[in-house]
Nucleic acid binder design. Structure first.
Lengths: 212, 212, 212, 212
DNA sequence: TATGAATGAGTTTTCATTCAT
DNA sequence: TATGAATGAAAACTCATTCAT
């Protein structure tokens, strides 16, 4: 899957006055909905267009092709999340609290935007090429945020210093990712945000009884 | 993605004399290779056939359709793994040791069969429908094995009894799954099996320093 | 290819005051450039518009459709050529000299406007329907001019009277057309106008040695 | 227009036993018919398929794409012509007679296969890229045949030796090409082959009366 | 069982053209 | 007149699947 951004500036990157009608975002939301419902490969661009209330050709005015729709959806949601995460974490001192807050933000955004959650947890995993491509950008930034909090916690003696922070960040991501996938596949009938605390409890304390 | 098993018995389930030539398995191995390389949706059935050294039509003598190829690949590998896991775990008494052994088996099989690992970690995730379908069968069995070990550990005081065993089993699966995905996407240049111990260390003891 | 002239009068036919800005001609020149570069069918109207420095919609204020752009280009260039040819030939008495002058004019205009030459020699040939349509108008006029000169030459004993003048006119056109096509395809690295004399030498005297 | 031959051997190049059903040739004939009727760009591959009595997809079993259909049509007809021309010319001693025979063959083949004539004279001229591509292969061979005959005639004093043989070959081609185009566009109501002699008469003797 | 030629449904994408501003 | 965002029809091409041999 080759992801190429449209050469021309996309409307969602244009100054407000130009993107006043928000067509670009409407198409992305429609794409999330359709991809979540049918799966990326089975989804038809014309379904996305119809859902967005525009003509087929209009989709191509804003996005280079179907792939770009998926890629842009990912970027858009990731930027949103990372920006909010940075803001929220800035006001928290304790590393444990930071991780909890980060986790809650991650989970609550997914609960608010279930379509996007499905795309992230299921549709985005379909191609090794796609994943490789993105794990080097936004995902890396996500992991870096976690890593910095963990190192911070190690410095103040909250977390075991012997553990490699990158490794721990990946472990935590794995935990959260798995919870999210599980929630998505279980049709979301349980409260995901409420899982943040128990998950982090195990992450912090492990499952062993011998040191309680 | 509708998964329908061929009405007729598949060759790999036939008595030895009928499956003597092992064509069914050859096709599955070819499918793993091709799916791993091109991705399930981009893979062509004719590529699978050519890789397996059979004609296109022959694939349809053993499998109902392209979907069935993916489904059968999953079942085949899962049965293999679960059988081996049950055998190996039977000889181990300690719950911790059991989890370590289970993890090592999971990881080492992936290292031995990288194509299958890729299909499991990447290609199988492409469709919510597909995942829902399978998370109810083999995956449930996988989780059940973990759960039993955990409850065993809780009974003998190895693990915290306050934790919900099903929840803990999912957490562990998430950890292992993430490690595997990471290994697959990082092009497998690091030793996966060697990660079993550090991962379980965190799983058992958590990352907190205050109870060391 | 259906060629329909816009019902409204085209700007290039309007009184000077209306076509003061010469937008119509600018669009035709842009069309020549773009058609020459990409070929008529591959050329996009929006490319023509951009090249002409106008908006896409503006093209349709001056021309009925894409076909009309090609047709108008042909008419415009043909009228230009025929007018100049008539003027130049008026001052020449000898039929041979007339043919030489005619040929030189044809060739030198192509050398001056290579884009138009390409459109004439290549792009205009793409459709039997299109060619049939135009061979009945301007091309007929072109051939008529040649025919008159030939008949003039026959009257004064310069050319063989036994030859059918219409046939000879077509032969000469064929010769010139072929030279032009060759020059266009050979990327114009040789001097086309200089070919006028040798071509006419063969046309006048043939290739036989026995009557030299 | 990028012309790429299918990597796999095309059926019309296969040994007789494999191409027994002649599907490849049937498709080429259908393509000639459809291209002649609608023009290459307006022709739909599905029309070609229907005319050939095969499914759309079958066309792609024998030809890489629509372009390849045109290119193969050209090659196929050219090879046919060149082979026959070489055979026929072998038995003729006189250079004049050779040119006459060559011309008659060219014209009579067009009269026998009007669709192919149309494709050659009209549809093949649509793209400078296409023409450049082919003028370097088969057309070059055609011109070379003419050139050799002309040089042969020059050696024995039949043709003026002062004339450049390559130039003369192109002139003759231009003459024949023009006759053919004219015949095609005039809807073939006149006898083309019968034009061979008068055309060559002018070619040999020119139009001048002064040396008769 | 095995083959592989043939099928034809299905979808992305392009781009000429329109029309509200 | 001029704009250019939006439209949506249209077609090349792919490939899973079938079936006569």
């Amino acid at each position: 899957m080759q992801i190429k951004r449209k050469a021309t500036v996309r409307a969602d990157e244009l100054p407000d006055e130009k993107n006043r009608n928000g067509k670009s975002e409407a198409i992305l939301r429609a794409a999330a909905k359709v991809f979540a419902q049918s799966g990326y490969f089975n989804a038809k661009v014309s379904d996305v267009a119809r859902t967005a209330g525009v003509a087929d050709g209009t989709v191509y005015l804003y996005f280079k092709n179907k792939d770009d729709l998926l890629a842009s959806l990912f970027s858009w949601a990731m930027e949103e999340f990372l920006t909010r995460a940075r803001t929220e974490l800035a006001g928290i001192a304790n590393a444990r609290e930071k991780l909890l807050s980060f986790t809650r933000l991650h989970f609550s955004l997914f609960e608010q935007e279930r379509d996007i959650a499905i795309v992230f947890q299921v549709e985005l995993r379909q191609s090794a090429k796609f994943m490789e491509q993105f794990s080097t950008t936004y995902l890396a930034e996500y992991l870096q945020m976690l890593r910095e909090i963990i190192e911070e916690g190690q410095k103040v003696g909250l977390f075991r210093s012997a553990l490699n922070s990158k490794f721990v960040a990946k472990l935590l991501f794995g935990l959260l990712d798995e919870m999210a996938t599980n929630w998505v596949l279980s049709r979301g009938n349980h409260n995901l945000t409420a899982m943040a605390e128990p998950v982090l409890d195990v992450f912090f304390n492990g499952v062993s009884a011998n040191h309680a």
